[in-house]
Design a protein around this nucleic acid. Sequence first.
DNA 1: GGACACATGTAAACCGTTACATGATTCT
DNA 2: AGAATCATGTAACGGTTTACATGTGTCC
Lengths: 196, 196
Amino acid sequence: MSLPHAILTALLEKPSSGLELTRRFDRSIGYFWSATHQQIYRELGKLESDGLIRALPAEQPARGQKKAYEVLPAGRAELARWTAAAQDPKPQRDALLLRLRAAAVVGTAGLEADLARHLDLHRRQLAEYQDIERRHFPPGRDGPEDRLRHLVLRAGIDLETFWTRWLAHALAEVAGLSGVTGGTASSDGAGTTPPR
Amino acid sequence: MSLPHAILTALLEKPSSGLELTRRFDRSIGYFWSATHQQIYRELGKLESDGLIRALPAEQPARGQKKAYEVLPAGRAELARWTAAAQDPKPQRDALLLRLRAAAVVGTAGLEADLARHLDLHRRQLAEYQDIERRHFPPGRDGPEDRLRHLVLRAGIDLETFWTRWLAHALAEVAGLSGVTGGTASSDGAGTTPPR
DNA sequence: GGACACATGTAAACCGTTACATGATTCT
DNA sequence: AGAATCATGTAACGGTTTACATGTGTCC
């Protein structure tokens, strides 16, 4: 139940067409709320028929034409309501942690490469966030909106910092175990490097 | 596409019935892969008809009877395959960060209480993880499976540590702004406390 | 035997993903 | 005119969530 509110936020920051929104959901807002263009178009239609946004008048009802939307007062009110409402955190789902737990039972064979790949992905993301911080939040300059946006960015930076550290540690650990780990009653006997 | 593998992992750790699995998905595995009992029963049926698990023979085909499952060799092989396969990280979705970004536009009114509540929830979770670490991973004792499980737990601890720190910081920031923040062309004029 | 917790299951609504369709604009 | 790109949209599928249904064992 958050996609409509993500769109309302994006539209308040800047009225946009569906494709422009899609682009922005690939950066910025998309860093913590991703969405595909199909979701966005579907939701834009719903928001419009609910009277929360409206298409900017541009006399182009045709199919391949740009159609920009802006937020109506009712939409702003709904976003304010949602922002202030109590919400429980979503239960976690992390496939990588699950895979490590599975590896404790079936062995770590083949895991190392993907851990290294994830480490690289998180390092890149971290670098991107730090770059944004350098460009958008130079020391000293922050109005009230900037402080909140900076706070959000700090969460991203600190999270990626955590993941890069943890993955580096995990990689060292898995490399140390190298090969056969577990499987109490395993039936697969593929040979791997024995511990020295 | 990870729920079946979460179930396979849980069943390898200990053969269980549907309800027992549901209980374990409220703790342990559920800390990083949540699932409801309906998902679990449906998936158990699918896994059984796919020949990856089987019901332990207990001569109880009736409805209100416990039915325990164990993993077959094909199931173990599938889990090993999945564990080693490359997988891209899922795009992030965090409603709380989205709400802060929204608050930069519609104001922070009402946010503080829920931030404080989240901080409390994360503190409790952190305490629970630390308690598990104390009980299950006393210093010095670790076989190879334990090292991996401990690694997973460390991720949980470090993540919760991050969130408690970040939320404490966010709370101080939002309290500092107290009240009206943004809205460039707002139409709602509800009065809040002015900055002193 | 009535109430309650245990245990498994069905049904429907909702959201997200993937594949495809179609019109408009621009470039060669 | 044909190809590529921009822009919006439809359709189908699959996973998740929520509500409800049903049977069993136990306790008073």
